[in-house]
Design a protein around this nucleic acid. Structure first.
Lengths: 133, 133
DNA sequence: CTGACTGCAAACGTTTTGCACGGTA
DNA sequence: TACCGTGCAAAACGTTTGCAGTCAG
């Protein structure tokens, strides 16, 4: 049985070919924009509608099944929700990569300073990747 | 002599009433969206055009005179460029606040792991502010 | 006085919506 | 079979553009 089918079902999301294609693309690419999802899927699935992509993406974000990633200078990208992680962004090639960083110390010092109750963080680091330099 | 006039001039930006209003609003509010700039200024400056706001914001971002801030769940906001800092975002009231955090250690560990040359970072911490809890 | 800035209206691209049809469970 | 999801077309947004007139330096 297909992994993506299992994944959707375990999140109470009804399985359709469109959704399978979206989830597979996200899994393979890691981070992907609506436009890219649409054009990539449409190649071998010409009947796919952009409205359907939007509707599904929105519902999945609503669910927390996927996460929206806003990056300055880029279109919004989407990724499957997984272990908390940060992002490395290459300013030359635009690549976005996951990286697991220790955030406890920064969060605890921010808590001390601000007196916020912090439960989520977004850390993006910009620079040039090894391949581009 | 008005501070904002000095500020614009020192960045080689021609001084106009529209730009003064925009810069003043950003300074006072810290972080503000295009829509809010437009509606707030328009109250006592009815001839202001939304296109002018966009043109100025874009030129100022281009200049690095101001910075764009993309936050999940909110419109893009703009802030005057100043000392590097991070952001606290209250999930209840939507408030965005600056906070100065030590980022050296996280950046250096990310550099070791990823081999990126990192020169910029965006750190956003989400939670509930003291006033809302 | 000249080039840059503004306001307006139109154009554009993106996202959302309503509705009839089709497919999943 | 019942309901949810899909595709289509239109509508609603947000942002950009071109142009003619105005203003800052």
């Amino acid at each position: 049985m297909n992994n993506y089918i299992t994944l959707l079902k375990s999140n109470q999301i009804k399985v359709t070919p469109q959704r399978l294609a979206i989830v597979e693309l996200m899994d393979v690419h890691g981070h992907i924009s609506v436009r890219d999802i649409f054009t990539k899927i449409q190649t071998n699935f010409p009947s796919l509608s952009l409205a359907t992509v939007y509707k599904n993406i929105n519902a999945m974000v609503e669910n927390s099944f996927i996460k929206e990633l806003k990056i300055v200078g880029q279109d919004a990208k989407y990724e499957l929700t997984k272990e908390e992680h940060s992002h490395m962004i290459c300013k030359k090639c635009g690549k976005v990569e996951d990286i697991i960083l220790e955030t406890k110390s920064i969060v605890s010092s921010a808590t001390k300073i601000s007196h916020y109750t912090i439960d989520e963080s977004s850390i993006q680091l910009f620079g040039v990747c090894p391949e581009c330099s």
